[in-house]
Amino acid sequence: MRRRTQRLWFVVGGLSVLSVAAALVLSAMSDNLVFFYSPTDLIKKAPPVGRMLRIGGLVEAGSVRRSDDGSVAFVVTDTNKTLAVSYHGLLPDLFREGQGVVAQGRLQPDGTFAAAEVLARHDENYMPPEVAKALKDQGMWHPEDGKKPGQQTAPAAMLDRPSGGGQ
């Protein structure tokens, strides 16, 4: 029995040391683990102009302008700060106003963002089209504002992740 207890403590101790080490490594690397910056992050971190990076947020309602030559301009918002994005190319099917988007590209000297690749990001809500329509008709939900059904004031789920709050 004594040997078993000894082994038990050895396993427990080993696992705790390992967890602490992993937590330290992950928190030290957390800047590198971020897949994209929100417009607010960009202002805080101020990455150099011309460096390749990813930005993400919601496509602001009414901001999408398409030109005849296939280029698109839109505004990405995190409901706090905004960033003007220009892009030339095909957009994913899910690219919509009020929906999440992640763009890879470079910051321009004029403060806009030139995207080389645009990916759509979808949220964690799934429902049949009739239900979505009914919610909208009842005025309970305004996807264009990036608000979730039944949630009137909180910002979009994707943007309050890093601070850990939200739900």
């Binding site: 992950l26 957390s30 910056y37 993400g56 964690e124 799934y126 049949p128 239900v131």
Partner: peptide, 27 residues
């Protein structure tokens, strides 16, 4: 991972605080 960092993958829909965010017809 989807809560701690910005990811392209969407956050949890089923096992999350506040209950599933999937309509019963799909859940």
């Amino acid at each position: 991972s989807v809560d701690w960092w910005n990811t392209l993958h969407q956050p949890a829909s089923v096992a999350r605080l506040g209950g599933p965010s999937i309509h019963p017809a799909i859940l």
